[in-house]
Write a protein that binds this DNA or RNA. Sequence first.
DNA 1: TTATGATTTCGTGCATACAACAAGCGCAAA
DNA 2: TTTGCGCTTGTTGTATGCACGAAATCATAA
Lengths: 248, 248
Amino acid sequence: MSDQPTGSTIAETIRSQLERAIVTGAMRPGERLDEQEIADRFGVSRTPVREAIRALAASGLVDVRQRQGATVGAIDIPRLIEMFQVMAELEGLCGELAARRITHEEKANLVALHERLIAAGDRVSPLEFYEINREFHEAIYDAARSDFLAEQTRALRTRVGAYRRQVTYLPGRVASTIREHAAVIDAICRHDGEAARRSLRDHVNLLGDNLSDFIASLAISRPQPAERRARAATEETPATEEALGERS
Amino acid sequence: MSDQPTGSTIAETIRSQLERAIVTGAMRPGERLDEQEIADRFGVSRTPVREAIRALAASGLVDVRQRQGATVGAIDIPRLIEMFQVMAELEGLCGELAARRITHEEKANLVALHERLIAAGDRVSPLEFYEINREFHEAIYDAARSDFLAEQTRALRTRVGAYRRQVTYLPGRVASTIREHAAVIDAICRHDGEAARRSLRDHVNLLGDNLSDFIASLAISRPQPAERRARAATEETPATEEALGERS
DNA sequence: TTATGATTTCGTGCATACAACAAGCGCAAA
DNA sequence: TTTGCGCTTGTTGTATGCACGAAATCATAA
């Protein structure tokens, strides 16, 4: 390993790198994770790589089958919808708790983030929009004052990250997101727990709905993913899944 | 390994065994998990033991700190309450979905389980009561038709298992449980999603409330039975250890 | 040609050895 | 006594070798 964070283990470093590769879409769902290959790529032995893969498997980002190696977690549509539904509940609970517990400073922060989001949305900067959106939700987690709930919600958010990213960029979705966030902020600042819960839950559920529409529209020209372990010796492609690929 | 399930790995076997030891309370919160010791105990090398421990850590049942080994997950009171709150939401969602999707056969099964629960409650058979209660909730997960939701809820249930077990056996709690379950069944059979969600959520939340009462009552005066063989008696333990440890 | 069975190949699962780090211990200095 | 430093010791983190098993390949028969 050339650059390793001091105080951290190799396994954790690899885990982090792989996670990043997966949630950003650099590694595509169904793609194989060969222990030896990854070990060579990072210049370490199989042991920490193996540990990293198992950790990712535990968080649901990769699938492992006995004696058959690991692949990047492929989530089928029904399951993805289920995940959004659960996420909606958790985010809703975050909203309700936040509405009851938020401080003045946090309110101000939320509003500020929202305005940054609007600005980013106007300039149509997907990456920045995505990041600010993340911070917005993180701010709500903080305000909810429930570490465990925050961890669970965050984990789920990460897990669907690769897919959600596609949805967030849908045309028209940005404007809707801003409107929905405005409703969330309003409810939270009014300390209306029920309204906050509802607006956040619906917000996330709408993402899920959009997702299904999105998927459905793609189902027409979907190539059969019969790719086995065919990997060219060339550089790996920083692409996204064909079904969820760039779309304008 | 003397008896290993065919088709399963050693690591998985060990993971399962350790999980069982933890959720049943045989291993107590804060207790240390020495890789070599466990490896010797099972007659295997450190490698699969290590893997098992990391898996348990990922599911939240054990805590690991870099270079400082692993301990059985110790959950403090605020966090435990947070976990119950999240669990209440998830169970509530299960209930709502179940109310909308349950079949006639499943209704009958639910009722049958409930009657078995009543019988077990009358005979005051804690272990059986616990098991039937588990099956009851599992039946609701099934009826909800959401694999992911079921997995999440089940995982959380397992995670608080060691603590929840104590609460379920509180005097008077059995009768309340049966009453609350009756309300749940009624709502589900009427296909009233909202009522099902509310009744199930409150049911679990009441467990949380009882939990706090339980903790509070123990904080006053509680002679330690200490009939269990003390393994790491000198080990530093969190507050919950005292409060939720062995009791009659 | 397809189907079926043996064989080869390649990757995972586990064992073992070594390295690195943290906690405990002893000794010396204040 | 207390404090600080270096050493020892024990445990974790990583590397490496080997064995088992599943998929791939090939051979043979219908």
